[in-house]
Computed example of a mutant assay.
Amino acid sequence: MGGAGLGVAGLALVPEVRLFAQQVHEFIEGPPVPDVKPEQLSPHVWMVYAKEGFPTQENQGLMASIIFAITQKGVVVLDTGASVQIGQMAIRMIKTVTPKPVIAVFNSHYHGDHWLGNQAFAETYGADLPIHALAHTRDQIAGNEGNLWRSLMERWTNQATLGTKVVAPNKVVEHGQVFDYGDVQIKLHHYGRAHTPSDLCFEIVQDKLTYVGDIAMANRIANMDDGSYPGTFKFYDELKKAAGDQLWLPGHGRGSKDLLDTYGTFMKGIWEPCVRAVKEGIPIDGAKTLVLSDPRVASRAKTMDGFDSNIGKYTSLAYLEAEKEAF
């Protein structure tokens, strides 16, 4: 039976029409992302830097940095960006500093700005390219979360990321594993829920540099929808104890040796007033007043990306978690 008389809604149910729509979607791609010259951070580690902020049409979703290590055995990439176009740009940039192929990819967590570029690497270096992640991260990307992030990124960038497909990690890793790439060893760290339930940090042992993904940020208020405030502080303590003195490199912003301390101070400026409010029976609106007047928070209010639009929400999440902790 043909599609005549079915109308738009009816046509959408015809298998041939659905297949055609899918093929058109996959054929059309958003524009290329302009090149960003890589910066060398240490003897082995380079960064394709993304300015802090949030995904927009103007930045085409480029708001999380791509990190890569050039090793004796090849290039290892830590997070691949928010689209196939960003991944393609990162590959072009890697080729400007080394002829070595990419031999492995690691995804720090399941938020799409850190892994939607996987597609570009799999298409360039083969479907068998190892893409590593914790099991929970792999499962989230392979499930509904993966397509949700793909759709959100298209919407936020006004279709600039169109053509991006979900390519989930194909290798499951665990806390404490050490990957040996000849002259470089990469040690994996996971200490429970922080930014998400499955954050993975990567210690480049020889360089005393650790890429921390989104558990800390330089000057951007973090998404805590899936996270935990006390879990974050525990993660920081365990990570510092295990890795020692490091250059801590975030997915958003510049790295520093005191990143975990400075961002932890800001986070405690949200958490501790909420704990006090719960103990003293102060309602949530009062907790927000306490947070905004805390000097650890107030000192960053005018300069932190996303502060005004997010501080209320993440104070509410802290208050709810403090209530749960109290009972």
Rank of each mutant, 00 (worst) to 15 (best):
F202D: 00
D183Y: 09
G176D: 12
N170M: 10
L188E: 04
R193Q: 15
P169F: 01
H195I: 02
G192T: 09
D199H: 03
G192K: 07
V172L: 02
C201G: 06
E174Q: 15
L188F: 08
V173L: 07
V184H: 01
G192A: 11
P169M: 05
D183L: 08
D180I: 09
D199S: 13
G176V: 12
G192V: 09
Y191Q: 04
H195D: 05
K171R: 15
N170Y: 08
A194V: 07
F202V: 04
H175C: 09
D199W: 01
Q177N: 14
L200G: 01
G182R: 10
K171P: 00
E174V: 14
A168K: 03
V172Q: 05
F202A: 01
G182L: 11
C201L: 10
V178A: 12
H195P: 00
S198E: 12
Y181L: 07
H189Y: 14
Y181W: 14
A168H: 02
R193C: 14
H190Y: 14
E174R: 15
Q185L: 10
H189T: 04
E174C: 09
V184R: 00
A168Y: 02
K171A: 05
P169R: 02
V172C: 03
A194H: 04
Q185S: 13
H175V: 07
S198G: 10
H195M: 09
L200Q: 07
H189G: 03
Q177I: 13
S198I: 03
K187I: 05
T196L: 08
G182Y: 08
A194R: 00
V178D: 11
G192W: 04
G192I: 09
G176H: 11
T196F: 06
V172I: 15
A194F: 05
L188D: 04
G192Q: 07
H175Y: 09
